[in-house]
Nucleic acid binder design. Structure first.
Lengths: 263, 263
DNA sequence: CTCATGAGTTGACGGTGTTCTCTATCGAAG
DNA sequence: CTTCGATAGAGAACACCGTCAACTCATGAG
């Protein structure tokens, strides 16, 4: 489906000299594009500017990407993976201390997401902000990477429910959403969330994270001169109470003092 | 500050023939620009395309707007005002039935916002989505319109607290955010929310609305094949419980059956 | 009637994504 | 070591974009 891209590799046994150079160029293009995106947002990305920064002709980029849409897709996949890596490593530091502290795992997940978003605002905007004008993400390339993040959240919540750290009956969210048969079958196969209320809880949590991060990163808290970090913690705390977490009252201390992220 | 724009009006007593024509042209430009924005999002707006649609030269537009940024600012202000009008009229229909039903007022506010956002996704993205690449909104023009919306929410919540429909002590959000002295003074002058917990409650509600609407409008619920309308109601319901509303258990019937908005 | 002011056009500049044609180099096969 | 196909890149062109300067022409006020 997406293979008409000009590629060198026929077999994949040893990365030949040419293929290594090719991969290095692809990496440099993506790196340059990300740097440019960081300056003026995802919509400010420009093939010609990337080429200029690399001392290369714009048309030369077409040896590596079919066009700017293809480059954007690659950046989207990288961003999804980077976000998933960030939250996974954040949760992992809890796991190696006490894998049974499910509330701490969720805190690590939420804070890990925020820290990644603040460190990489352009990537966050790319995947969770306004869709780019003429661009439609090819889901067959993008979805797997995107589901890694969702999967981590799903696993944390599912584990918490199984361990009794979340009591679905005391959760304020009691909705059982109707979901597609595909997803339903996938969940049953994975043996998680046979109680559909978990889906609603996950969606509610996602909504709050998305809401806070878009408001914060897109500058809507600035005129309030409010401490966004503390506010985020309060949102997570309230969210955990509505989710049915048992011990959510205590906000764990923050690793980094509440510094305003550089805008 | 923003008056070097070429304007005709010296006095404002009778709108002269010229000024009427001028205003009509301005309206047509904004209408054309909004139609174009609706097609391919805020970042897809193009002065030349607007001029083309109006059978006019691009440079002619500079008689009416200093540049594309100035046009964007005008569209932002219009969007803020349209949103405020939408939620105000939505709340007004409740008020003329029973102004003391504070839960119903909040429901009307929330649903009014969603209905407006679904009907005008480009305008929503313009003011609450990813900031446009080179554009920085001039706050002195934009803020007053933006505050109309905030003010409506503030008033509904304040009234609800005063009437006892919201019990701040039972709210899950107990945070008292530190806010700027300006805002603090303004609140005191208006005699609302001397209890700062109300601010946190307002911010929490705003976060959920923003989160749900960006997720829904930017297409992140599509692969779930979920009923976004029902999900929204559940989010509002849970939100009202965390806010300390007393009778939030019942979701009021929807006026429009949950039809998927045209994408 | 005069004439400044407004609306509008024309043409240019530098920027953008994209495509086509051409050249030089690399790497492997003979 | 030579040959030759594949690859990387250059260059020019096209249509689009925002913006500006100079110019024309009609309007409306004195």
């Amino acid at each position: 489906m997406s293979t008409p891209r000009p590629v060198t590799d026929s077999g994949d046994h040893p990365p030949s000299r040419r293929e290594r150079f090719r991969q290095a160029t692809i990496d440099e293009i993506k790196r340059t594009a990300r740097a440019q995106m960081a300056d003026e947002g995802p919509a400010g990305l420009s093939l010609r500017a990337v080429a200029r920064a690399m001392n290369i002709t714009p048309s030369a980029l077409y040896r590596y990407f079919q066009g700017i849409d293809d480059l954007i897709t690659a950046l989207c996949v990288d961003a999804y993976n980077a976000l998933a890596d960030a939250v996974n490593s954040s949760v992992a530091t809890v796991d190696e201390r006490d894998p049974a502290d499910h509330a701490a795992r969720w805190w690590a997940f939420a804070r890990g997401m925020r820290e990644w978003a603040i460190a990489n605002p352009a990537d966050f905007a790319l995947i969770y902000g306004t869709p780019l004008p003429g661009y439609e993400a090819p889901l067959e390339d993008t979805r797997p990477a995107g589901l890694r993040f969702t999967g981590t959240a799903l696993r944390i919540l599912s584990d918490a429910v199984d361990a009794g750290a979340i009591d679905l009956d005391t959760a304020l969210i009691q909705h059982r959403p109707t979901i597609s048969d595909d997803l339903s079958a996938a969940l049953d196969a994975a043996g998680i969330f046979s109680d559909r209320r978990g889906i609603a809880i996950l969606l509610g949590a996602w909504t709050i994270l998305q809401g806070h991060l878009t408001l914060e990163l897109f500058g809507h808290f600035e005129w309030l001169h409010i401490d966004a970090g503390t506010l985020f913690d309060e949102h997570v705390r309230a969210m955990m109470l509505t989710m049915g977490f048992d011990h959510a009252a205590a906000v764990p201390p923050r690793r980094t003092p509440s510094a305003t992220p550089p805008t």
